[in-house]
Deep mutational scan, measured.
Amino acid sequence: MSIQHFRVALIPFFAAFCLPVFAHPETLVKVKDAEDQLGARVGYIELDLNSGKILESFRPEERFPMMSTFKVLLCGAVLSRVDAGQEQLGRRIHYSQNDLVEYSPVTEKHLTDGMTVRELCSAAITMSDNTAANLLLTTIGGPKELTAFLHNMGDHVTRLDRWEPELNEAIPNDERDTTMPAAMATTLRKLLTGELLTLASRQQLIDWMEADKVAGPLLRSALPAGWFIADKSGAGERGSRGIIAALGPDGKPSRIVVIYTTGSQATMDERNRQIAEIGASLIKHW
């Protein structure tokens, strides 16, 4: 067993022997301040990774656009098919120029040779490549099948209805392509620590998230040296922004954090800054 596999296998073990965790309302004060600064709703939840206990939450059962955070769930569904012998990570998928959609920095470079399922998941999570996500959605049967996968996990809230990039439209009061912070946090925890996926697939999923290259201005910008984070960000229309993450000190994750916002007129930089400040408060009061 590799060191990384050992780390993920012992996530519940280490967490069980940690000192009790206590909620700190100071972080919620910052979440509410972010709402004021952005002029928009902000949803927040913080779960203990081992027990699933909610440590703090704000608007945990209000719907927010998922945006690209759905790509972690998508690759979880792909990995479940791999575990069941219905898919192979090494299978190569070929596609054409007509398949390319807006923001496809990886797939646009491989029109000639195609990409493997493993490479597509890596591109979808680490670079948020939209064509990679659409190609992977095709392998599982489309958005409705991802929703069905989530329902089978016990998540009857999260739903995907459309493809990239239309799913980022974020129309107010439109339930399409949305989740709730509580539902997303619980589902992410199941994917990373539950028995739904094999140990190898859980490790692969967290490795992809740990290698995320496009979430630097968010929670990662607030992390002290030595902290662990595996995350996936999302951005959408109407001032929408979000991030889902597993993080913790001492090089291992111990909490799940989900943050979503929508309806702001603020710039992307300002949305990023507010999420980073929430992260800084979380870490300060850990």
Rank of each mutant, 00 (worst) to 15 (best):
244 I>C: 11
98 N>I: 09
140 I>V: 15
34 A>W: 04
108 E>V: 11
58 F>H: 15
88 Q>R: 11
62 E>Y: 08
181 P>E: 11
209 M>W: 09
162 R>P: 11
131 T>M: 13
154 G>V: 02
24 H>Q: 10
260 Y>S: 00
151 H>N: 14
256 I>Y: 14
264 S>F: 06
240 S>Q: 08
173 N>C: 08
157 V>L: 05
180 M>W: 03
197 L>P: 10
149 F>N: 10
235 A>K: 06
261 T>K: 08
38 L>W: 10
81 R>I: 05
188 L>K: 02
115 M>H: 00
258 V>K: 12
121 C>T: 08
223 L>N: 09
83 D>F: 02
126 T>F: 12
39 G>Q: 14
75 C>Y: 09
149 F>V: 10
197 L>I: 02
113 D>N: 06
282 L>M: 07
199 L>D: 02
180 M>G: 00
177 D>P: 04
146 L>R: 02
26 E>Y: 02
127 M>Y: 01
194 G>K: 14
34 A>P: 08
171 I>R: 02
32 K>H: 01
91 R>G: 08
109 K>S: 12
44 Y>S: 08
183 A>M: 09
153 M>N: 05
247 L>C: 05
145 E>P: 04
211 A>V: 05
178 T>L: 12
95 Y>G: 14
72 V>N: 03
248 G>W: 02
98 N>K: 12
241 R>C: 04
86 Q>M: 10
70 F>L: 01
91 R>K: 05
58 F>T: 11
46 E>C: 05
63 R>Q: 05
128 S>V: 04
190 K>Q: 02
96 S>L: 08
78 V>P: 10
207 D>A: 02
147 T>L: 11
73 L>W: 02
151 H>S: 10
222 A>C: 14
267 T>A: 12
222 A>G: 13
282 L>I: 05
120 L>E: 04
114 G>Y: 05
118 R>N: 12
38 L>D: 03
213 K>G: 03
84 A>F: 12
206 I>K: 14
81 R>T: 00
134 N>H: 08
164 E>Y: 13
61 E>M: 10
144 K>S: 07
69 T>S: 03
139 T>F: 01
102 E>C: 12
163 W>Q: 13
160 L>N: 04
103 Y>D: 01
108 E>F: 01
170 A>Q: 15
253 P>H: 11
117 V>Q: 00
245 A>C: 12
244 I>R: 08
73 L>R: 08
50 N>V: 07
132 A>G: 11
48 D>F: 00
83 D>Q: 02
284 K>G: 05
269 D>Q: 05
283 I>G: 13
234 G>P: 03
28 L>A: 08
149 F>E: 14
35 E>C: 03
119 E>Y: 15
77 A>E: 05
213 K>V: 02
112 T>K: 13
148 A>Y: 03
188 L>V: 05
51 S>N: 09
187 T>P: 04
158 T>S: 09
26 E>V: 09
250 D>T: 03
88 Q>D: 12
276 A>I: 07
84 A>M: 12
68 S>Y: 02
135 L>K: 12
135 L>D: 01
210 E>N: 15
175 E>N: 02
233 S>T: 11
157 V>C: 15
267 T>C: 13
114 G>H: 06
252 K>N: 01
145 E>G: 07
126 T>G: 04
115 M>A: 01
72 V>E: 00
132 A>Y: 15
54 I>M: 06
238 R>M: 12
152 N>L: 11
244 I>S: 14
65 P>S: 07
260 Y>G: 00
115 M>D: 04
160 L>Q: 15
161 D>F: 03
150 L>G: 06
99 D>I: 07
229 I>E: 00
67 M>L: 08
24 H>T: 11
267 T>W: 05
150 L>D: 00
116 T>D: 08
68 S>F: 09
251 G>W: 01
98 N>H: 09
246 A>K: 02
178 T>V: 06
125 I>M: 10
140 I>L: 14
205 L>I: 06
155 D>Q: 13
56 E>R: 12
222 A>V: 13
67 M>G: 10
46 E>F: 15
88 Q>L: 12
62 E>G: 14
47 L>C: 00
92 R>Q: 12
27 T>H: 06
115 M>T: 00
102 E>R: 07
30 K>E: 10
40 A>P: 02
117 V>T: 02
257 V>E: 02
160 L>D: 03
274 Q>H: 03
229 I>A: 02
